[in-house]
């Protein structure tokens, strides 16, 4: 008897302290929103997410908590996003990996398990080499890779089957070579790969150009070309592949905001508008410009189409590289 009283008191007391901060019924959003990031704190995706979250907070008038769910080449975070309740209070920063992982048998999840809200960034792949390395142009790189025996050269920048691996393998295929003519050395990201390249133990880092920026500015690395239709504003000296060797090949990594499948269209609309305002805010635009990251806007519908289109494209590359399961 005594314990039951104390227990109900306890529940009452604690219950009260938990209940008070919740507001009465109101329009969405009425409580803090969680934004799941599938990559580690400190990386490019994380920084993008934190900036957009800060801008979004001002738009929505609610706290937006950035939560890193890292590891497993993005599987863990993307899973957490898809498994959340589709109530609009758990969103995620979805990245291009969602179009690669399921082809490799790492997860059952595809882009169809999400409600697209908006695309906020696109970074094209570049070709970075050591400043004192054997290549001085894309042309000489292609020639040497073709003439030397397979697996003479090494490249790195993501894990096995990651975006820069597939981008580079696609480039080799585009140039009429086997996808594994250059050995891919898996790494935890582009920063450790740039370090390895500076230490002289790998030859090529096909990451986005901004990721190699500090090493380029330090004179340790140089960017030969970007796999994009146009030059980047932040790196006007780096030619496109078209200009360098006449190839139309363009590929990169996109990032966007998405929620779990089955969200209320009204909530999606609210969010789409808020994200658009956040995207156009000075906070976001200034940050992206300073970092050198590319900005690209697509609303919910277009973003959905982009994911479908990219999914098919990466499916083909994964198969040609021989990683398909």
């Amino acid at each position: 008897m005594k314990t039951s009283i104390t227990r109900s008191h306890l529940a009452g007391l604690l219950g009260l302290s938990l209940l008070l901060p919740l507001p009465a019924m109101a329009d969405y959003p009425e409580k803090p929103i969680t934004l799941i990031v599938p990559w580690a704190a400190g990386g490019g995706t994380d920084a993008t997410a934190r900036t957009i979250a800060a801008a979004l907070e001002e738009e929505l008038g609610q706290t937006v908590n950035v939560v890193n769910r890292t590891g497993g080449s993005g599987v863990v975070g993307h899973t957490a996003m898809a498994m959340a309740k589709p109530d609009g209070y758990t969103l995620g920063l979805i990245t291009g990996e969602i179009n690669m992982m399921h082809w490799q048998g790492l997860t059952q999840l595809t882009y169809q398990d999400y409600t697209p809200i908006a695309q906020i960034n696109y970074d094209y792949a570049g070709i970075q080499v050591a400043a004192d390395g054997p290549f001085d142009s894309v042309e000489s790189l292609v020639e040497q890779v073709k003439s030397e025996p397979a697996r003479t050269y090494t490249a790195s920048g993501t894990g096995q089957g990651g975006v820069w691996h597939l981008a580079f393998a696609g480039f080799l295929l585009d140039q009429g070579m086997e996808a594994d003519r250059v050995s891919w050395i898996p790494s935890q990201g582009s920063a450790p790969a740039m370090t390895e390249m500076a230490a002289g133990s790998i030859d090529i880092v096909p990451s986005s150009v901004p990721e190699g920026r500090s090493m380029i500015e330090a004179g340790k690395a140089k960017s030969l070309a970007i796999m994009a239709p146009e030059r980047l504003d932040s790196f006007p000296d780096v030619p496109t592949l078209k200009e360098a060797i006449g190839s139309d090949y363009a590929i990169g990594e996109w990032r966007g905001i998405a929620g779990p499948k089955g969200m209320d269209p009204a909530v999606v609309e609210t969010l789409e508008k808020a994200v658009e305002a956040a995207y156009n805010s000075d906070t976001y635009q200034n940050f992206m410009a300073k970092q050198g990251f590319g900005t690209e806007w697509r609303g919910a519908d277009d973003f959905g189409k982009l994911m479908a289109e990219q999914d098919e494209r990466f499916g083909k590359i994964v198969e040609q590289v021989g990683l398909a399961k």
Partner: peptide
């Protein structure tokens, strides 16, 4: 977790969180 080099999951017993 997922082996960084090969991308193969090891000792994960099908738990997505263990992939990390």
């Amino acid at each position: 977790g997922l082996d960084m080099m090969s991308g193969a999951p090891r000792f994960t017993f099908g738990v997505p969180d263990l992939m990390a």
